[in-house]
Each structure stands twice: as structure tokens, then as C-alpha cells.
Design a protein around this nucleic acid. Structure first.
Lengths: 141, 141
DNA sequence: ATTATTTAGTTAGCGCAGCTAAATATTAAC
DNA sequence: GTTAATATTTAGCTGCGCTAACTAAATAAT
């Protein structure tokens, strides 16, 4: 009788994450923004004018990857870049009004499918999920 | 009186999944197999000689995507393809001994970082995480 | 029996996101 | 003033998701 090992928990968690993102990618498509762009935009909106390097760290990607993501967002008019006054090597990235608006819409669409699935759960299951969120975030960061 | 709305739960879950996969990708690299390949190999190992279409459904990707994943695995000598005797349109995919071996090693490496993080949690947190796993899997599939 | 339709898989080709290495620009150090 | 360090970008690679179009095989229709 094998009690579930920590490896099993880790493996199931990993697998669940893969399947979750796959199934949500479709909603992302509907908003016109990919998951990485939406995630980056979210940080930009909430963390104000932010240095590209800090943004890359926050999103756990390398600088060149973030440069490209930001270029995409900029081309769509969702963010703006401007050189930092103090240190002209750094680029500060800020969201435009359109970016903020689109984030909210995109975010809503993105999570709505998941929201529906969560709402379909029993109250007890919802409580269990909620209770584990803090732990989940600590473990995945 | 809901402090955290279902939307918030959904959003945090989504975000957690993104960060989890990003942080685990490095471990995947160490094993020489990407997450999608490792995941597919896992299904192949456990679901025996399986039809490509069924494999694609199980992994929630389109057939061409799975064709390519399998080609990669085959080139590495981890799986073998053979036409089904009964219906010669279908390809059955089976793991080689090397594939089975590599899965176990890869799986171990892949989850070891996560396993360590889980083990670092308090017993109560671990219990909370374990308890939510079933719910999590139901919600993400 | 022949023809048409459906099903399974592959090939071709596009876009996005991850990476490293190398280039550019600015600041800091000596 | 030259050199070293830092921030970002550019160039170029790989891999994975997709759709459209193709081949081959099985099944249905006439």
C-alpha cells in the first residue's frame, strides 16, 4: 500500500500544470494575446514603469526573450518604452491605457473557462483548492 | 462574503502553472528531453503500444504535433513505431527499453527540484497540497 | 465491382517563445 | 582616457503549437 510519495505529488503537479496551460491556451488566443505576453503585460500594468531586466527576472526569462515580448506588446500599442532619465542604459516599460484595458479583458477571457470549471466543483472541493493556493504559489515560484 | 473571487482563484492558478513550468524546464533540459516529449513518453510507457491519435488526444495536442514529438523520440531510440496488423492505417507506438529507462531517470530529475521544494514545506502545507491534488487534476483536464 | 466518403497519419510551412553569443551604448573605475 | 562592467538589443538556433493539403487504407453506396 503505497502512500503517495513526494515524487508522486511533484509529478502530478507538474502534469496538472502542463494540461492546465494547454487547455487555457485557446482562451488566450481569443484575446489576441499569448500567455507569455499577457503575463508580462500583467506585471507591467501592476509594477508600473519597470526596467526590462527586472521584468525578465519577474517572468523568469532571459533578457532577449523579454525584449522580443515587449517589442510585440509595443507594436500592438499596449506598452511604451522610454529611456530612464538617470541611467540611459535602462529602458522603462509602461502600459498604455489600451494595454491596461486589454489586460482586463484578456485576463477575464483567459480565466473564464477555468472559472467555470471551478464553479462546477463542490463547495468542499473549492475550499480545498482555495486553501492550497498559497502553498501552491510558494512551491511554484 | 467572498474575499477571493473564483476569478482570482482561476487567475492565481493560471499564474502558478506558468511559473511552475518555467522553473521546471531547466530540469527537463538536464535530462535531454523537453517537457512535451517526456510527457508523451510517459503516456507511451504506461499506456503500452498506443495509437498516435489516442496519444495526441491524451496529450491534448493535434495529430501533426504528436507526429513530430514521436519522430523526435524515435530518432533518439526511445520509442518504436509499427503498423497495426488489423488496421494498417494506424501506427502503434511503443517504448523501447532505453525509453523506459530514460523516462524513469528523466522523471526523477524533472521532479527532484519540485520534490525538494515540497519537502521543505510544513507537514500541514504538504497535507493541504496533497488534498487538493485530485481537485486540481479534475479542474485542469 | 467500382466509386465515393471517411479515417489515420504524415508532410509542409507559419508563428511564437525559449535559449546563447555577440554587438551596441552607457556608466563606473582606475 | 582607457578599460571594465552593466543594460539592452540583434542575430540565429531549436522546439512546439497550429492549419492546410496530401497519401494510404478502410468503409459505404450504388
Amino acid at each position: 500500500m503505497s502512500i503517495s510519495s513526494t515524487e508522486d505529488v511533484a509529478d502530478r503537479l507538474h502534469s496538472a500544470a502542463i494540461h492546465l496551460l494547454r487547455s487555457l491556451r485557446r482562451e488566450d488566443d481569443a484575446s489576441g494575446l499569448s500567455a507569455p505576453r499577457l503575463s508580462a503585460l500583467s506585471v507591467i500594468v501592476y509594477a508600473g514603469p519597470i526596467k526590462l531586466g527586472d521584468l525578465a527576472k519577474a517572468e523568469q526569462v532571459r533578457a532577449p526573450t523579454m525584449t522580443r515580448l515587449v517589442q510585440g506588446l509595443e507594436k500592438d500599442g499596449l506598452v511604451r518604452r522610454k529611456a530612464d532619465a538617470g541611467d540611459r542604459r535602462v529602458t522603462r516599460i509602461a502600459a498604455t491605457a489600451r494595454g491596461r484595458r486589454l489586460l482586463m479583458q484578456g485576463r477575464r477571457r483567459r480565466v473564464s473557462a477555468l472559472t467555470q470549471r471551478i464553479n462546477a466543483l463542490s463547495k468542499a472541493d473549492q475550499r480545498s483548492l482555495r486553501a492550497s493556493l498559497d502553498v501552491l504559489e510558494r512551491v511554484t515560484r
